[in-house]
Amino acid sequence: MSQTQEAQTINVKSKRLVSLDALRGFDMFWIVGGDRLLKALLLVMGLESAHAAVSKQFIHAPWHGFTAYDLIFPLFLFISGVTMPFSLGKQIQTGTPRSKIYLKIFKRGLLLVLLGCIYNGMLSLDFANLRYPSVLGFIGLSWMFAALIFVNTTWKSQLGWTAGLLLVYWGAMTFVPVPGHGAGDLSMEGNLVGYIDRLILPGKLYRGVFDPQGTFSLVTGTGTALIGALAGTMLVGKNKLSEKWLTVGLLVLAGIGCVLLGLLWNIVFPINKEMWTSSFTVFTAGLSFLLLAVFYSIIDVIGFSRWAFPFILIGLNAITIYLGAHHVINFGHTTNFFFAGLVNKVGGNWGHFIWAFGFVLIELTFLYVLYKKKLFLKV
């Protein structure tokens, strides 16, 4: 067995970490109705100032800067990296041929690209006006590249790869000139990411001259997934309670360190989700480490998990609810069918709250049926 294989096959547990499903579900909750429900609840409680403050956090930063909503995407990608030492590590440990592992990696990555194109309207067959980049595609390709690095390197090499990718991206964005704009232009029109996409991508870009899931940003997207894989390596094989609490401490330290590094880097290379800058990658990885520490300590260390069951339902079928809530299934129509009468009768803020609550309740009911039938969309 090679050194790389030894590094990736340390006591991989067959039992999945419930905290990962719960954290993934918590992450998705805010884009499938949770944001609307929280804002409606605050209005019902008469907390208008809190509603205004929360509302500002539930929109993306227009360019440079950061809001809580900006964390949802990188946290999901981070979690997909955390699973690598468990899923891919287990395959290596059990002697699965590398060719089969590579095939699964490419299959998953490219399937997410396809689902992303379908989400963007590919079935309309208007390929000239199709937006080819997508959230799902960005996740798929970033995960795929990170997975290929993971199965062929040790954790130390993965740390080096991560640092190298973030530094290369920073250097390219700072020093490679864009025709008509020069080097280091980080505006929407003048940055290197948008220029590359305008050169090579068919169809249309989300913002005309720029796409937030741009091809060159896959460099730092891969970095996000690799940092997640490093977090997963910290979790693997921890059976004793003392080992688990030590891991929680390490996750917290890593989180604080990444947040501080991201804020420092922001001084010279702004935190920007649209371009997925290196500072954004490190900063959001830090927040992801901290959230993972919270969920892991409460659910998998202390063993208190009942409160998280709604999030677990979402996390186990995250792709299903993402596609369903936004395109495939009209949960809004179903909510109107069951709750419109009550909403109209009550009216006002309570009416808005009842509708938002009903929307989430119907989604969770749908996911619970899938859960009981053991139906999960796996890619």
Rank of each mutant, 00 (worst) to 15 (best):
T281P: 02
I362E: 09
L115P: 00
L313H: 03
R98K: 15
F78S: 01
P97Q: 08
N239V: 09
I105V: 05
H327Q: 13
S278V: 04
N129T: 02
K100P: 01
G121F: 13
V282G: 04
L110V: 08
V168T: 14
A50E: 04
F353L: 10
V32I: 15
L241D: 11
L38P: 02
T222Q: 05
P97R: 14
F150S: 05
T4M: 05
K273A: 02
T334I: 14
L88E: 02
I118M: 08
I196H: 07
Y195G: 03
L148D: 11
C258T: 03
L361D: 04
V113L: 14
L226S: 06
D185G: 12
M275P: 05
P212Q: 05
P179R: 13
G95Y: 07
F66E: 08
F283N: 07
S242V: 13
L47W: 14
S278C: 06
D126N: 15
R24I: 08
K378G: 01
L23R: 12
T94E: 11
V168S: 12
G221Q: 12
K238N: 06
S80D: 08
S134D: 05
A22H: 09
L291D: 07
I200C: 12
L186P: 00
L43M: 14
A50N: 05
I298R: 01
A50W: 15
G160H: 10
M122W: 13
L192I: 12
G347A: 15
G65N: 06
W265M: 15
G180R: 11
I101H: 03
S14W: 04
G347V: 08
W155L: 08
Y102D: 05
T247P: 08
V360A: 06
G65L: 07
T335R: 09
P177L: 11
V32C: 02
A61M: 01
F210D: 02
Q57N: 14
N152R: 13
F339I: 07
L230W: 11
T4R: 10
L290T: 09
S124N: 13
L125V: 02
G347P: 09
K273S: 00
G223Q: 12
Y195W: 15
T4S: 04
K156M: 08
